[in-house]
Design a protein around this nucleic acid. Structure first.
Lengths: 148, 148
DNA sequence: TATTGTTATACTCTATAACTATA
DNA sequence: TATAGTTATAGAGTATAACAATA
C-alpha cells in the first residue's frame, strides 16, 4: 500500500485513514493466528463462546454481526477444528455452544496472541495516546449504528 | 453487532475496537456508494486513477495494496461500468488507465458521498478530536508496516 | 405465526500459479 | 531474466432464499 497521500482529497478523510489502519492491523493479526488454524473472525467467535458457554447460534451471530446462515458456517468450521461442540440447547430448536478442551487451549492462545499483537501494533503510541484512541474509536462506534 | 463488552478481555484490546469502528464505517460508506455501482474499494481505485491519469495497473495495485491478478479484476469491473478505459501505455506491455467522461462524473459523486459520509460517521467528534484521531491512526499506520 | 437451524446458491474481494507478450 | 498483464482456480467471508423442525 502506498502512502495515503496518493489518494488526494480522499486521503484527508478520516474514513480512509481508519480503514487502512485497520487493514494493516488485521493482516498482522491474521498472520499471528494462522498457526492455530483460525482467522480473526473465528477467533472472536471462540472468545464469545468461552464467555457465554451454552449460548445459541443466534446470539453468537448477533455478537459477530453476521446472519444465521453465516453463523452456521462459522460454527461448522470451529466444530471441524475440534474447538467447539454443539450440545442440546434450551429447547429442541437451539444448539448450546461449548468449547472443548482443545477449544480452551485455543482460546488461551488466541488471547495471548491478540494481546501481543495489540502491543506490537500500537507500540508507537504512549499509554495516554492508546487511551485517547480507544475513547475516540468508541465514540464513533456508538454513533455509526444510527447511520442509514 | 452487540456491545464490544461481550468479548471480555478482547474488548479491552484496541485492535478489536479499531476493527469494529472500521466495519461500521465501511458498511455505511458501502450503502452510500451502492447507488453509483461501486464499492469503497472500487471507489478508491477511481480516485487514484483520477489523480494519476495514465498510470499502469501495477501502480494502481500497489496503491490499493492488492496484487496483479486482483488489479485486473478491479480494472475489468470499472471498465465494464464505463468509468475507465485502458489505453496504450508507456510500452507495449503496460496499459495506461484513464477516466472516461462518465468516470469523471462518478469521481465527483464519490468524493461528495465520501465527504458526506465522513461528516456523518465522525459527527460525534469535535474538530480537535478528529485531528487527534487522524494523528493517532497515522502513527499506527506508519509503524505496522514493519510488523511481521 | 415466529424462531432456530440448515442447505443451496451466489457474490465480493482476495490470493496463487501458470501463461503470453514484451522489455 | 524481469516486467505487465491475463486467465483459471481457489479460498474466506458474507448474503438471500427456501426449507424443516420446533415453539
Amino acid at each position: 500500500m502506498e502512502d495515503i497521500a496518493a489518494f488526494g482529497v480522499l486521503g484527508e478523510r478520516l474514513g480512509l485513514t481508519l480503514h487502512y489502519a485497520d487493514v494493516r492491523a488485521m493482516a498482522g493479526l491474521s498472520m499471528r493466528l494462522a498457526p492455530f488454524g483460525v482467522t480473526p473472525a473465528r477467533a472472536t467467535a471462540v472468545v464469545y463462546i468461552a464467555l457465554n458457554p451454552g449460548c445459541d447460534q443466534m446470539s453468537l451471530g448477533r455478537a459477530l454481526g453476521i446472519n444465521r446462515a453465516s453463523t452456521v458456517k462459522a460454527v461448522n468450521e470451529l466444530e471441524t477444528l475440534g474447538a467447539i461442540e454443539r450440545r442440546p440447547g434450551r429447547d429442541r430448536r437451539a444448539n448450546a455452544l461449548h468449547l472443548t478442551a482443545a477449544g480452551e487451549t485455543l482460546r488461551a492462545r488466541i488471547e495471548q496472541e491478540t494481546l501481543e499483537h495489540d502491543r506490537a501494533a500500537f507500540a508507537s503510541l504512549s499509554a495516554d495516546e492508546k487511551a485517547q484512541l480507544s475513547r475516540l474509536l468508541s465514540k464513533i462506534r456508538s454513533d455509526s449504528a444510527a447511520e442509514g
